[in-house]
Amino acid sequence: MHATDRELVDRRHRLARLFTPPFAENGHHDPGYIKAYPPGVRENAGQYTHGCIWSIFAWAALGEADKAWELFDFFNPVGHSISPKAAEHFGVEPYVSCADVYSIGALAGRGGWTWYTGSAAWLYRAGIEALLGFGLRGDHLLVDPCIPADWPGFTMIYRHRGSEYHIQLDNPAGATRGIRDAMLDGAPVGLSGNAARIPLSDDGQQHHVHLTMGSGAPGG
């Protein structure tokens, strides 16, 4: 992952390449159809978004919140349009995920194919599952967030069949990982490693989950 960060992440243009260097059109190696793209475009060493998003999952699994959230910001199209100049260079809609971002020369940082469901779906999953830590496991919900230390917390509402779970997470100690305490409707529930393990029921009721992160938690 340190090699990934060193070789593939381009902070100037807010992107992460699929690989580097690109295959040259007149080169001896033939990896298949990706060589048909110009260097730095789409799968030929551009940011092929839905594949590159997996690095967010990897950094979050390692508990590296700063790395994971930095990449999430890079993949978020809004971040490419923070000024009129940036939006003009990005060149595509700033409110949808794009399949690719060019990575070489004057076009570096320009968006490609937009409204691509693969990249949108994986970016959504990265945010909800890898970063906010939402994990549905049968009749239990595992919550194992990886968040910036300066986040005070967050809230989620999850509808489980006919029931509704209101989840409040607090981070008073400025932790990046690890649940210290977990309560369901005022009663303590168990932990599983870094995660809170919340039993789910289809009783048509509204339930309240309160989670606290802290330095005393595993990985906190």
Rank of each mutant, 00 (worst) to 15 (best):
A16Y: 05
A16Q: 06
A16R: 00
A16I: 04
A16V: 13
A16P: 02
R17Q: 05
R17P: 03
R17D: 11
R17G: 06
R17I: 04
R17V: 01
L18P: 03
L18A: 14
F19Y: 13
F19E: 06
F19T: 01
F19P: 00
F19D: 01
F19H: 15
F19M: 07
T20L: 03
T20Y: 14
T20R: 09
P21N: 08
P21L: 07
P21D: 14
P21G: 06
P21H: 10
P21F: 11
P21R: 02
P21A: 07
P22M: 06
P22L: 03
P22R: 00
P22G: 06
P22N: 00
F23I: 08
F23H: 06
F23V: 01
F23C: 01
F23Q: 02
F23K: 01
A24C: 00
A24M: 10
A24D: 13
A24W: 12
A24G: 02
E25I: 08
E25Y: 11
E25H: 09
E25M: 02
E25K: 09
N26V: 03
N26L: 01
N26D: 14
G27P: 10
G27E: 00
G27A: 01
H28T: 12
H28P: 07
H29W: 05
H29I: 05
H29S: 13
H29L: 08
H29R: 07
D30R: 09
P31E: 08
P31K: 07
G32V: 03
G32L: 07
G32D: 14
G32M: 10
G32E: 15
Y33N: 09
Y33A: 05
Y33G: 10
I34Q: 10
I34N: 08
I34T: 03
I34M: 12
K35H: 15
K35R: 15
K35G: 13
K35W: 09
A36D: 13
A36C: 07
A36Q: 15
A36R: 11
A36Y: 14
A36K: 13
Y37T: 10
Y37I: 05
Y37N: 14
Y37G: 00
P38Y: 08
P38T: 08
P38V: 11
P38I: 12
P39T: 07
P39A: 05
P39R: 10
G40Q: 07
G40H: 11
G40S: 14
V41G: 06
V41W: 10
V41Y: 13
V41D: 10
V41H: 09
R42F: 15
R42G: 01
E43W: 03
E43R: 04
E43I: 02
E43Y: 02
N44K: 05
N44Y: 12
N44T: 04
N44C: 05
N44G: 06
N44R: 11
N44P: 11
N44E: 13
N44H: 12
N44V: 03
A45G: 02
A45F: 11
A45V: 08
A45H: 12
A45N: 04
